[in-house]
């Protein structure tokens, strides 16, 4: 539906990656979102024409290196914009635009529809208040009585596998391990029974063993609550393991989007391929990881053409001057000028 109403105003590179949801309003739709920060006189671009979709109950991965703009994109969904940021495009949650929403609309969105799990549980929970206060804060704002809110919090703590949930409510964040605290954060995110969960690198700050547990809990709860999830990570392999569909970001742009298994098996953008090749493999006879040469650039310092051109093994002169559009190719889309040449085959 977005296509017909918006296509006149949209640029050619913002064709939504999926048309499956045309019949119903998607849970989350970013349409050609551009975000710029004032940096002295010249505005500094952070996001450029980002479009993505999350349907109800679906897990969508947003993958990229640090500085690619994936976290910023994720935060726009809650209307959490950097100071003085200027945006164009639309971020719609269940059809309502977030970027033009007033304070009341934003509050409703944040309290009832969308929750976020942040990277570092130590930093994201107020260390001076009890875990019970943290868990019930949202519910109490919704007008629930303290007793009911605590009962609901206890229920959710049990669900995320905290032992002695009643006692946990009385304890302080520093009395929990990082993994346990992230479970508390996930429980808190689910108190409002949101339709959409944003997970911004929820396992990056945790031990490897804890990571698996936390991802497991997220997946299980998401399934039982029917929550859609936008999973932001730099770990393409993790994303491929849990997501239905993955968007790959580079320097503020979506460079490829595809169903997870297919992206993993047959990446069509050289950046995705390089990202996969740089992941160490455990299988026997696997090739050693190859690092991507050069360093990730931000959108502001990217050349006029393809932002990845300088690090790309397949780049030709044209790549440095001509900006590639995100072109659909059946199951997904890739933004590479040479995608049709079969360079990755």
């Amino acid at each position: 539906m977005a296509d017909t109403t918006k296509s006149t105003t949209k640029k050619k590179n913002s064709v939504p990656a999926t048309r499956a949801a045309d019949s119903a309003t998607p849970l989350l739709a970013l349409d050609d979102v551009t975000l710029r920060l004032p940096d002295g006189a010249a505005a500094r671009p952070i996001l450029d024409g980002v479009s993505l979709r999350v349907e109800r109950g679906e897990t969508i991965g947003l993958v990229g290196e640090s500085g690619s703009g994936k976290s910023v994109a994720c935060r726009t969904v809650l209307g959490l914009l950097p100071k003085n940021a200027r945006t164009t495009g639309e971020v719609r949650v269940e059809g309502t635009d977030v970027l033009t929403a007033g304070p009341a609309g934003l509050r409703d969105l944040r309290r009832n529809k969308v929750s976020m799990v942040f990277q570092d549980p130590r930093a994201s929970v107020n260390p001076m208040r009890r875990v019970g206060d943290f868990l019930t804060e949202g519910l109490r704002l919704g007008g629930m009585s303290k007793k009911d809110a605590l009962a609901r919090a206890e229920e959710l703590l049990t669900e995320v596998g905290i032992r002695d949930p009643k006692g946990a409510l009385r304890r302080f964040p520093h009395e929990f391990s990082g993994g346990m605290l992230q479970r508390v954060v996930i429980a808190a995110a689910l108190t409002s029974d949101p339709a959409l969960l944003l997970a911004d690198e929820p396992t990056t700050a945790l031990d490897v063993t804890t990571q698996a547990e936390v991802v497991g809990i997220l997946r299980r709860l998401q399934a039982t609550h029917g929550t859609g999830m936008l999973f932001v990570t730099h770990d393409l392999e993790l994303a491929a393991a849990i997501c239905d569909r993955i968007y790959v970001m580079y320097a503020g742009r979506i460079v490829e989007s595809r169903p997870a298994a297919e992206l993993f098996a047959r990446p069509r953008h050289p950046y995705t391929a390089a990202l996969l090749a740089s992941t160490p493999r455990l299988e026997e006879g696997a090739e050693p990881p190859t690092a991507i040469s050069g360093r990730p650039v931000s959108l502001a310092e990217a050349p006029t053409g393809c932002a990845f051109a300088d690090r790309c093994a397949f780049a030709v002169d044209r790549c440095r001057t001509e900006k590639p559009a995100l072109v659909e190719d059946g199951t997904g889309a890739a933004a590479c000028l040479r995608v049709e040449e079969g360079i990755l085959a």
């Binding site: 935060r75 809650l78 944040r110 309290r111 930093a123 107020n126 804060e137």
Partner: peptide, 14 residues
């Protein structure tokens, strides 16, 4: 400047 303050805002706390 603490992140938990941002988290509180992200949760719709006035």
């Amino acid at each position: 400047s603490r992140e938990h303050v941002e988290v509180a805002r992200a949760r719709g706390v006035p």
